[in-house]
Computed example of a mutant assay.
Amino acid sequence: MENADVVLIAAPMYNLTVPSTLKAWLDHVIIAGRSAGPGSSVAGTPVYVVASRGGSYEPGTPREGTDYVRNYLTAVLGGTLGMEVDFIVPELTRAHLHPAMAGLVPKAEASRAKAFEDAVTKGKAAARRVA
Rank of each mutant, 00 (worst) to 15 (best):
A125Q: 12
F116M: 13
A119Y: 04
S41Q: 15
P99T: 06
G79V: 01
G55H: 08
I9D: 07
D118A: 07
I88N: 10
R112I: 01
L22C: 07
K23Q: 11
Y14H: 13
L73S: 04
E64A: 12
A126T: 08
E2P: 06
S52R: 08
S111Q: 11
L97E: 15
P46T: 10
L73K: 11
S40A: 02
L22E: 14
A95P: 08
D27P: 11
E91M: 15
G82W: 02
L26T: 08
F87N: 15
T121L: 14
L26H: 09
E117D: 15
H98I: 15
S56N: 15
T17S: 04
A126S: 08
V69P: 05
S35H: 11
D27F: 06
T66F: 11
P46C: 01
P19Y: 06
A125K: 03
Y68S: 03
M13H: 04
Y14F: 04
R70L: 02
I30D: 05
T80A: 13
L26E: 07
A113L: 06
T21Y: 14
T121H: 11
V49S: 08
Y48N: 04
T74C: 03
Y72G: 01
A126D: 13
G44Q: 01
M101W: 03
G54R: 01
G123C: 00
V6R: 00
V6K: 08
A110K: 13
N71D: 15
R70S: 15
M83L: 08
L77P: 13
A108R: 01
A115I: 00
K124P: 01
A10P: 02
A115W: 05
H98V: 14
V7P: 00
L104C: 02
R94F: 12
R53N: 13
A51C: 04
T21E: 15
P59H: 10
T121F: 04
V85L: 01
F116V: 14
R128E: 13
R53M: 10
P99D: 14
M83E: 05
E84L: 04
A51H: 02
N3M: 09
R53H: 09
V89I: 10
E109W: 02
E91W: 08
V18N: 00
T45K: 12
A113P: 03
P62H: 12
A100K: 14
L16H: 12
T121K: 14
I88T: 05
A95R: 13
G39T: 07
M1A: 12
D118K: 01
I31P: 11
S41A: 15
D86N: 08
G55P: 11
V47L: 05
A100R: 12
R53D: 09
P12A: 10
Y57Q: 10
V47C: 03
P90R: 02
A51D: 09
G55D: 14
N71V: 11
H98M: 13
V29T: 11
I9F: 03
S40L: 08
T17Y: 05
E117A: 14
T61G: 10
Y68I: 02
F87E: 14
V18T: 00
A119R: 01
